[in-house]
Design a protein around this nucleic acid. Structure first.
Lengths: 341, 341
DNA sequence: GGTGTGGCTGCAATCGATTACATTAATTCT
DNA sequence: AGAATTAATGTAATCGATTGCAGCCACACC
């Protein structure tokens, strides 16, 4: 209908008050009289007024939106985290901007520009594998309180962080396999340089040692979180001189592809080898066999991250406590693990 | 470092020119002399100037961002489409806003507000299941050229659309099963009221008739695109008096869950029944058995959608041709289908 | 030499909301 | 009753970039 949306001025004219009053009536209702408030509401109604965010953003120096940076949009692991983030943001009238690391990098944008050019009030980074110089830049910009790392983080950098109990989850996984009777356990890792990869690998090695188990060099198989890596890892495992009876993969995608590749070679899970994942993505339960894994509550992780960031943005000077949250994980035992043959 | 980012004024002062000239030097370089251009570049360099998007957006009445509306963020089907969209948008200096239908609805936001309040220049809607009154509102707002439906669409509404060859894909699927020797084929549908559900179901029924095959009432099993629906559908199929030898599911998620549920009941795919999906999501190939399905090139779909929307936004008056794109699909034969027992 | 012509540049208005400060009216206190 | 306080509203500056209009200069042409 109306091609031109009406402005505060229009509302003010119709209501017979000043723009200041209209603004107050809308954003801070208790500052105006009951009667003007209703008069303004009516005027808003008749004019079909919608606030112009660009104008407000300019004046308030706030964009009312948050950037979420992913390593890879096509990885289903992230979708539920996004749902959680989005839920909280929407609730607070914030918009969610999405970008993937690769694209930001490719298009030559600087990540910081999102903050500097007033596109975003803050950012949630789901990628701990950022180039070190990018991270340094973020730190030195003095904007650490407007940045939050979720799931992954950067060792040695001082950003607020939300993550899950990776260490404990890994111990749980190894213990589960041990309890089933496995004594020779392999680990397919995440990508080189990734914090999660290191934490989970270290915890794995630690627990293997604690249980006094054997660990051949070939039993720590390098991978990343992708499907392709899972297939490659399976081939590596198959090529092992001394195969393990169980394999703990650093992610579900990895584990599913691992099992699939084994299947292509006629190797049965869990009859011939037990396989575990980490994450508990939706499809894990529907896989055949259903995947034993370590569950991260991704929705809650997203919500927590968004909430923390929002309070940081809202109360920027509130330094100190509460800048790290570690969420519990839980072992989900399904059918991809069984006693060794 | 600098807490306050510098403005055009600062650059102008340093370069010894007016703000107008700086603005022109940056956004329309050929309008200024070579020498001033370099002077401005230097000034930008030394001041560390970053454009303030809020200011530009206000002045130009453009937000330089696009909203993507999903029915469900947690569905991996969409992630690759997002990747495609994001790629194109980033390339043109646009940002990608994401929201899910449910949340927009829950938070009482009006969808149109994104356009009206200058948060987004356009929107790509991946949900054909919007309430009819929402759709009417969008149409009547005269903003149809700033809205584009992708994957799904709304029957009878005149929006630019990108979709895949759903009809042909369905025929291919049925023919594939027919060629394998199946004569009793069931169909698990998408959600009631969804266009894709109708198109695929109609094409299915049509082709069954064309091939002169039997079609019992119970063989069209209502579902939606979710995992849970796949499980329910499998139970329904199991409960059938007269089971079919093949099942064509309206989505991969549906198909995978269907197979999983069968497996829980000890029914083997494809030995006892062939199952097909639609979409070819990443995990389909890694499933056991690998899923026979109809492939949609989701990346390309996203790219096409973004490109179309961008040209519409850029040349709004260019009505007429090119407001619908239909992308080809391809049959991907894997191992979840085989000749009937 | 006068007058066009055209290329660069500057001045200042503009986008639409927010908010510090001023003003007015109403209420309370001494 | 007069002074002081408080509450509600209005005035106008402001956020930072873009852009229509006008001015200026140099050069060419007659």
């Amino acid at each position: 209908m109306t091609l031109k949306t009406s402005t505060l001025q229009d509302v003010a004219r119709v209501a017979g008050v000043s723009t200041a009053t209209v603004s107050r009536a809308l954003s801070n209702p208790k500052m105006v009289t009951e009667s003007t408030r209703t008069r303004v509401s009516k005027a808003v109604e008749t004019t079909g007024y919608r606030i112009n965010r660009a104008a407000r953003n300019l004046r308030t120096q706030r964009s009312h939106s948050v950037l979420v940076l992913l390593p890879d949009l096509a990885n289903p692991f992230f979708s539920e985290i996004l749902e959680g983030i989005s839920r909280i943001l929407a609730h607070q009238g914030y918009s969610m901007l999405i970008a993937s690391t690769g694209q930001v990098h490719d298009s030559g944008e600087r990540l910081l520009d999102y903050l500097d050019d007033a596109r975003a009030d803050g950012m949630i980074i789901l990628d701990g594998g950022l180039d070190r110089d990018v991270v340094d830049m973020l730190e030195n910009a003095g904007k650490t309180r407007r940045i939050l790392f979720a799931c992954e983080w950067v060792e040695g950098a001082d950003f607020p962080t939300v993550r899950c109990e990776n260490h404990q989850g890994t111990l749980d996984a190894v213990n589960h396999l041990y309890d089933l009777g496995h004594r020779k356990i392999a680990h397919v890792t995440g990508p080189e340089g990734n914090v999660l990869m290191h934490v989970r690998k270290d915890a794995f090695v630690e627990q293997i040692a604690a249980l006094d188990l054997e660990l051949n060099p070939g039993w720590v198989i390098p991978g990343d979180f992708s499907i392709a890596a899972g297939c490659r890892a399976a081939q590596a495992w198959i090529g092992l001189e001394d195969r393990t009876t169980a394999v703990f993969c650093a992610s579900d995608q990895l584990a599913l592809a691992f099992i699939a590749e084994l299947s292509r070679h006629g190797i049965k899970v869990p009859e011939e080898v037990s396989v575990m994942g980490f994450d508990d993505i939706d499809i894990a339960e529907q896989f055949i066999p259903p995947l034993t894994t370590v569950r991260q509550d991704r929705m809650r992780l997203g919500e927590t991250a968004a909430n923390m960031l929002m309070t940081q943005i809202t109360y920027p000077d509130n330094r100190g406590a509460g800048n790290i949250a570690i969420l519990p994980v839980s072992l989900v035992v399904r059918e991809s693990t069984a006693p060794p043959p």
